[in-house]
Each structure stands twice: as C-alpha cells, then as structure tokens.
C-alpha cells in the first residue's frame, strides 16, 4: 500500500487517506506538466514536418490542415539527405564497436587489479571525457588531414573515441564492481584461461553493462555535431551537418528541416526502449 506513494505524517490510516486524497494528484500533476513541457516542442516539430512550407509561413494553427508526407519524401529520395543518415550510422556503429572492444579489458583491469599508475591513468581518461570538443576541433582537422583520413567515417569514429572510450571504461568498471571477485578466482582454479574465462563467463555476467555502455557510446556519438562536422566535407558528411548547412544556405525550407529532425529522433527513441531499465544506472556510470 505504501509503495504507490511516499508516506506522510500521521498514523498509517491517516497517511493512506491523505496520500490518496491530496498528495497523489499533486505529484501526478507535476509529472504531467513536466512531460507536457518536454513533449510540446517535439510535437511542434512533428506538426511542422507534416505541413507544407506555405502553410507554415502563411497560417498559424495547432494542427496541420492537410497532413502531408511530402517533406519526408524529399529526404528519403534525395541522396544528399539520406546519405547523411547512412554516414552517421556508419561512424556511430564503428565508434561503438571500437569503444566497447577496447574498454572491456581495460575496465576489467581497473576493477580487479592495482597496478603502477592506475589512479593517474584513470584520472587522465576522465579528463578526456571532460575535454571540450571545441579545443580539439582544429588539431583533429590537421591530424586527420595529415594521415589522409579526412572526410572518412573512420576519422569521425576515432575522434569520438576521445569521449566515448573513457565513458565506456567508466560504465563497465561500475558494472564489473558488482560482480564478486570470488567468481574470477573459482574460474581460474577450475582451469579457465583468462581469455576463455572473460568471454565465456565474465562477459555474460555483465551483459547488461555491455548493453548500457554500447547504448551510451551510440548515443553520444549520434548527438555530437562539432567534431563530426569539422572532420568531414562531402563523402562522409553526417546528417547533423547536412541540416546546419541547409539552414545557413537557404534558411527557408522549414518543413524539410523539421522532417529531418523527426527522423533523427527515431533511432534514439527505439534504442532507449530496449535499455529503459538501465538508463539511470548507465548515466550514473554504473554507480547507483
């Protein structure tokens, strides 16, 4: 009974009455107001995506008069637009794979052993998560130009490792801390070699952690714009850059811009559904 809401002052029976009668609606109201605040701008973007440009600029209405999918058609048929999504997906997936793969053994080392310089190394990794991408924009541009990676998906994927690898190490280390060390020791006694133990026993145990780390790498690579835009020009141009350049070039086609925005929200919304029970734990770097 007490689990539906927080208990308040008074005897138990009084509390139940009061939370039912007065406390509960207030809380629900706060949540509803907050969710409306969150969803209203997104709703507005959606209605714009369903309107023609003429309707957007000439009339002001809450619902589109004649909902049209024309704006989405523009994006899905024009290579300049849809290649942006393809490019973004390529470097995001690449980055997620690289980040999680290198972070797994490192997180294990940090979580299980002490070694020379471990604390300094961990702190150094942390500073990279905190480094402003703006600081790195220009040197990245020069570095990747000089080794011939400029305007490739790999360049963006590597650049995003700057903040995603430390993040993945952190999250995984937090999750690994929850696995008792006795399991490792038992496995070694049973004659498991390290690689076999790690892939057969340990990784399944922290599968949720790996999922969450992958999700966060995916997400932070997907939402980043500055580095992705700096490191690409034509061939590997991500969707976010396509959008900003359209704005500055014409500044007119609001409908298509809105439709492009809606399409960028969808992957995140899909992925979030799968990790919904671990989102908060992931944001807390596995340390709840």
């Amino acid at each position: 009974m007490s689990s539906t809401s927080m208990p308040e002052t008074g005897t138990p029976s009084e509390t139940t009455l009061r939370t039912r009668g007065r406390g509960f609606p207030v809380k629900a109201l706060v949540i509803v107001v907050y969710l409306v605040f969150l969803l209203l701008p997104i709703y507005w973007l959606l209605t714009m995506a369903l309107k023609t440009n003429q309707e957007i600029l000439s009339t002001f209405n809450l619902f589109p008069d004649n909902p049209t999918l024309a704006n989405f058609t523009v994006i899905l048929t024009d290579p300049a637009w849809y290649m942006g999504y393809v490019n973004s997906t390529i470097y995001v997936v690449l980055n997620t794979l690289i980040s999680v793969t290198v972070a797994l053994p490192a997180a294990y080392a940090f979580s299980r052993y002490r070694f020379m310089g471990d604390k300094h190394l961990f702190f150094w990794l942390l500073t990279n998560r905190m480094a402003p991408p703006a600081v790195f924009a220009l040197p990245f541009f020069q570095l990747y130009s000089s080794i011939g990676l400029f305007d490739t998906s790999l360049a963006v994927a590597l650049a995003h490792c700057l903040f995603n690898v430390p993040l993945a190490v952190w999250i995984l280390e937090g999750f690994m801390g929850g696995v008792p060390r006795e399991i490792d020791e038992t496995a070694y006694i049973d004659g498991y070699s390290f690689p076999r133990f790690f892939t057969r026993i340990f990784m399944p145990l922290i599968a949720p952690g790996i999922g969450v780390a992958a999700f966060f790498c995916f997400m932070f690579s997907w939402v980043e714009l500055l580095l992705a835009r700096t490191l690409t020009s034509v061939d590997a141009k991500p969707i976010s850059a396509t959008m900003t350049r359209t704005v500055s070039a014409s500044g007119l086609d609001w409908g298509v811009l809105a439709a492009a925005g809606i399409l960028t929200i969808i992957p995140g919304a899909l992925v979030i559904y799968f990790v919904r029970n671990y989102i908060a734990k992931g944001f807390a770097l596995g340390r709840v």
Partner: peptide, 26 residues
Amino acid sequence: VPVCLVLMALPLLIPWNVVGTIWQIF
C-alpha cells in the same frame, strides 16, 4: 514507470543540433 522513463529520456537522445533546431523553430 516505463512510460515516464522513456518519455523523460527522449530529449537526451536528440542530436544536439536538432535540439537547437527544435527551439529555433519553437
């Protein structure tokens, strides 16, 4: 609970430039 969680996490997953675009339009 899951409904609230997913809806609340939605803004976190929108690319930052799209967040800008949303508010620019809004």
